[in-house]
Every structure is written in structure tokens, then in C-alpha cells.
Design a protein around this nucleic acid. Structure first.
Length: 271
DNA sequence: ATCGCCTCCTGCGCGC
DNA sequence: TGCGCGCAGGAGGCGA
């Protein structure tokens, strides 16, 4: 379940194996991902060289001579670098053949991921042209959250998980950052103060950056990577801790469903 | 415009 | 040991 830190770690991990390298073949073993992989993907990717890999939200954007293609890891996807001889795994849906007998393989048991040819104006694509700000770039500004949330009645948790507002905050980090900020996930977004948004964005940045650091520590093993994502290496303060004592005040952590998603909070620390 | 629900899919853990 | 069930979750799409 890649969150933004895992996507960024993936980008950094695969980059040395792809930048400036030619993808001489693309084999699609199962085109039924979130959207069916159409012929333009293979046509425009096979035989091209990768110039750059960018990340926007949880999308990976690969640039070649003709334009850009996009990949999303969905819930269960991964990209890993292997030797060509290495055996295929169940759910290896796409294999990119690289120089020096290497492969990049896209594996995705749940097939919520996608692979899409975008052409030469990637940011005009409907998946990308309505996205909110990147929490880890200079553009990140709590004032945007404050202004856009006025008169909003949805929960603050749904609000920060809305990609049209701010990108890359998945369920785990939404729970964790709200706990660190003392804000109950059910509170109406419009009732969160300017001061609280400053604190909240700061905490979102902290948990994301911390997790990228942990992910980065496994980068050396990225070939044949099977490392646990960063958020399993760190201590989660509320996520998955139903009925366990709050680390701050010992109150039992509560769980509730918000927007079809499991939400955890300390009823004493978070108001 | 905004909100909340539905959906895609497989693996896992649980209860019996 | 095995079966069936429910749950997990990113995010687009849709109806209200």
C-alpha cells in the first residue's frame, strides 16, 4: 500500500537504472489494471530512452523522446529492478527490458494501479490538471488549507485526503498527522483554525519526510527489493491501535469509519 | 461546488 | 485443515 513516501522511494530507487537507458522491449502480461493498458502505451514506450522520472502526487511520470507516460502503484503495486533471468512472480503484469540484462517489473496483486501514455502535455491530462499542492514543496502553504476549508462541512480527515486540495496524504498519514496536531478527525474542516492548519501541515510534512528517510535507508537494497515500507518501520501512534493506550495520556485509542476508511484517534488528546 | 457512497481487486485473518 | 466471510485501501466517478 504505497503512500507518498513509498512512491518517492521507488522513484529514487529505479532512477539510476532507467535514466539515460533504453527500454528495448515492453511486455504486458495482464493489461487489465485500473484502466486497460492500450496499444499506445507499448508503442510509445518500447524502444525509447528515459530522460527523467518525476513524481506528482502518487503518480510517477516517465519522460522519453516522445512525451510522458504515467504509472500509479495503486494499493498494492511495486516496481522492482531484477535480473532478466530471475523468475517471474505472480502478478508481474508489465516487464520493461533494460540494458545489461536487467528488467523493471511492475507487480500489482490488486490491480488498482495503472500505466498510461500521456503524450507531450502531461500536466494537462485530467488525472493531473486538478491536483492540489505538494506538501513537501515550496508551494505548500497552510493558508491555502485555511482558505479552501472555510464553510466546508466535510470532516477534516476527508479534507486533507482530498487530492484536489493537497496531494499525497493517505489514510495512515492522515490519522497520524491529525493525532500529532490534536485535531479530532471528525471535526468539520471549516472549524479548524488558521493556527491549527499551520500545525497540521507542519505535522503532515514531518511524518512524510520521516518516512521517506526510513525508505531511503533501504535504497541500497532496491534491486530485488522486498523491504518493508517506511511506515512499518516506524511506530505508528494511533493507526491500527484500537483500544490500545495513547502514548501521551494512556486513554484508549478509538476507531471510527469516516468516508469508508478506518480512522483512529485519542478521544482525550484530539478535540 | 460539495458531499458521500460505490467500485475496482486480491490477500489475509478470523471464526467455525 | 479447510472453508467462507469480511475487511483493507487509492482515488476516480457518479448521483444527489
Amino acid at each position: 500500500m504505497p503512500e507518498l513516501p513509498e512512491v518517492e522511494t521507488t522513484r529514487r530507487g529505479i532512477s539510476p537504472h532507467l535514466i539515460g537507458k533504453k527500454i528495448h522491449k515492453v511486455d504486458v502480461f495482464n493489461k487489465h489494471l485500473r484502466w486497460e493498458i492500450d496499444n499506445s502505451f507499448q508503442q510509445n514506450v518500447a524502444g525509447s530512452s528515459i530522460k527523467k522520472i518525476e513524481r506528482r502526487a502518487k503518480y510517477l511520470l516517465f519522460e522519453n523522446q516522445k512525451g510522458y507516460f504515467l504509472m500509479h502503484l495503486g494499493m498494492s503495486g511495486s516496481l522492482r529492478i531484477t535480473h532478466a533471468k530471475e523468475g517471474m512472480l505472480k502478478h508481474d503484469h508489465i516487464v520493461f527490458s533494460l540494458p545489461e540484462n536487467k528488467h523493471m517489473r511492475f507487480n500489482d496483486p490488486r490491480r488498482f494501479g495503472c500505466a498510461l501514455w500521456l503524450g507531450d502535455k502531461p500536466y494537462e491530462h485530467k488525472l493531473l490538471n486538478k491536483l492540489g499542492f505538494e506538501p513537501l514543496k515550496k508551494e505548500a502553504d497552510p493558508e491555502i488549507l485555511f482558505k479552501k476549508s472555510r464553510k466546508r462541512t466535510c470532516s477534516i480527515k476527508n479534507f486533507i485526503m482530498d487530492n484536489h486540495i493537497i496531494v499525497g496524504v493517505g489514510n495512515i498519514y492522515a490519522n497520524e498527522s491529525l493525532f500529532l496536531s490534536g485535531i479530532r478527525p471528525t471535526r468539520q474542516a471549516g472549524k479548524v483554525t488558521r493556527k491549527e492548519f499551520k500545525e497540521l501541515l507542519n505535522n503532515i510534512q514531518k511524518v512524510l519526510e520521516h518516512s521517506i528517510e526510513l525508505g531511503g535507508s533501504t535504497l541500497n537494497d532496491f534491486v530485488n527489493a522486498d523491504g518493508k515500507p517506511g511506515y512499518f518501520q516506524q511506530t505508528l501512534r494511533v493507526y491500527g491501535r484500537k483500544n490500545e493506550p495513547c502514548f501521551v495520556c494512556d486513554t484508549a485509542i478509538k476507531t471510527i469509519v469516516i468516508g469508508q476508511r478506518a480512522s483512529y484517534y485519542c478521544p482525550s488528546c484530539q478535540q
